[in-house]
Amino acid sequence: MKILVPLKRVPDPDTKIRLKADGSGIETDGVKFAVNPFDSIALEEALRQREKTGAAEIVVVTIGGEECAEQLRTGLAMGADRAILVKTTANPDSLAVAKVLAAVCRKEQPAFVIMGKQAIDDDSNQAGQMLAALLGLGQITFVSKLELTDGNRRARCSRETDAGIENLTISLPAVLTADLRLNEPRYVSLPGIMKAKKKPLEELTPESLGVSAASRTRVLKLERPAGRKAGVRVKTVDELIAKLRHEAKVL
């Protein structure tokens, strides 16, 4: 069984995002980058499924510049077996990412794909669903529990929705997207890092896969939202009630 786990390089979630002065993008100088936290959860789940089912090859893949190899090495250090970097200088939107990943999937033929439900940079929450559509496969988004069944030909999943937990089964191959509570990803160990250095990292390009990484989305400008100002401190519950009733008039 082969499991494909796409990883995205994003600014570390604890980083304060700064914009370039001309609004053309975010400031990347001196910014620490990490694997998108939801993708780490997806990879952790792949590792756990391998531990449960015995044999599985786990392939991590990302799309971007040379610098993204760092996040693939992190994935390898967590326990993935090999890595694929689809090199491009384009900044692909979700649909372009899905097209590139679909080409990788056609080449690799994984038993299933598991990836984060959203990347914490553009917060789009689209790529997994688009990938499933392009491959003509089923999808389960926001997975909080995963169990492979029927000799790894089906999966039973719980997913987190606005209304509560939903339980579904799905035929594999399929695309699954991981939500926060699926698991708690392991830390990378020193032996893991040493081993990762020797694991294969293959470089491809969108062209070599026969697809384009061109986006339909054109970002014209980035800016800061109008900030909220801190209000006043009240000293007592009585004062709070008075303010809410008579000043803000919301009670």
Binding site: R218, L222, R224
Partner: peptide, 12 residues
């Protein structure tokens, strides 16, 4: 985007 810290102006 970016957890509400950035507003992007975009065309499709």
């Amino acid at each position: 985007m970016f957890a509400g810290n950035v507003i992007a102006t975009v065309q499709l």
